[in-house]
């Protein structure tokens, strides 16, 4: 029972990341009709916003180490610590949450620039062309990051307060032995909030209503005198921000390296297809569902029955779904059917 509970949490956690990326992919596809293979690279760029900020904040000066009295010892002390003392130390500690503030404008600019500079020339071209050009872009972004930060994963730690584990078992009546890392709980909560925010934006604001109308029938909305193109550009930026934030928050879980985006991209595409191309709810549901399935299949008990199932479960589910329900779980009629 304990194990199952923990696996569900694990799965939801992983599923949160899948759902966030898949949500952005679906938004872009639903609005602009573009298949964006560079979305994983945007996730990665979000993660590297944290790395950059961490590097900047911890620029250090060599100072004499007063704790060693026998000889002259030196240590590196970040300027922030020298200037602001404990406040500086706290800022460095909270690098991940602070990065969110940095990542939002950066990712928005990246997204809008990408849409205006590249994607808009590809609305009318074949999906194969869109896949190819964004695939190329993903390689370029990856390599740029690699040339700046190197090929090795760079560890980033969560704030000290939430570094430990939460005794979550006592909350749900499973005993104190069941614990779960705080940060992963926060991530789960965070992804829930972001997903809810995006949905609320689309559902309850006039802006979102126009965007949804545009998704349904772009031409008519345009005829009504609304500049739907500009709104779609903003939506692309929004999708970029969502991917970036998913990356920012994921850094303490997985040390970022330059090709982390590609791994998530492939999985997220599978998630989108399982959920149904163009269906936001489908993408989110499928994301959590596949996350949970994956974490269950990686339990030793399951692996003892079907060896290697944890490696292929997501793809297997995708194949079955695509063959049984060609439109995915919640796909609408007429989307991507040629």
């Amino acid at each position: 029972m304990d194990a199952i509970f923990l696996q569900i949490l694990n799965g939801l956690d992983k599923g949160g990341a899948y759902a966030l990326i898949a949500l952005g992919l679906t938004l872009v596809f639903g609005t602009l009709g573009v298949v964006n293979f560079a979305h994983g690279a945007l996730f990665m760029m979000g993660a590297f916003c944290v790395v950059t900020l961490q590097k900047v904040l911890t620029i250090a000066k060599r100072v004499k180490d007063p704790s060693v009295t026998f000889f002259d010892a030196y240590k590196e002390q970040p300027y922030l610590e020298i200037w602001f003392g404990d406040t500086g130390r706290a800022i460095i500690d909270y690098v991940v949450p602070i990065s969110i503030l940095l990542a939002i404008p950066i990712m928005l600019i990246v997204g809008v620039a990408m849409e205006r500079g590249l994607i808009r020339y590809f609305y009318k071209r074949a999906h194969a062309d869109q896949i190819l050009v964004t695939f190329g872009l993903a390689i370029v972004l990856q390599e740029i990051i690699k040339s700046f930060f190197g090929a090795n994963p760079i560890p980033v730690s969560a704030p000290h307060v939430v570094a430990g584990s939460a005794a979550i078992g006592s909350l749900v009546g499973l005993g104190d032995a069941v614990v779960y890392p705080w940060w992963r709980l926060i991530y789960l909560l965070f992804s829930g909030v972001v997903i809810f925010g995006v949905f609320a934006f689309l559902q309850y604001t006039t802006y979102g209503m126009v965007v949804r109308a545009g998704m349904a029938d772009r031409e008519t909305v345009g005829l009504l005198g609304i500049n739907i193109q500009r709104r779609f550009t903003i939506v692309f930026g929004l999708a970029t921000v969502v991917a970036g934030l998913a990356g920012v928050m994921y850094t303490p879980v997985l040390p970022p390296d330059y090709h982390m985006g590609m791994e998530f991209l492939v999985l997220s595409f599978v998630v989108v297809v399982v959920g149904g191309m163009g269906s936001l709810g489908g993408a989110v549901t499928a994301g959590f569902l596949l996350g949970v399935l994956q974490s269950f299949s990686s339990m030793t008990e399951v692996k003892a029955i079907i060896p290697g199932i944890d490696q292929i479960i997501i793809y297997l589910v995708a194949v079955v779904i695509l063959l049984v329900r060609p439109r995915g779980l919640m796909g609408r009629k007429g989307v991507m059917e040629s």
Partner: peptide
Amino acid sequence: GIYFSILTLAF
């Protein structure tokens, strides 16, 4: 279409 690409990718 893209579903074919994803299926082959999955395999």
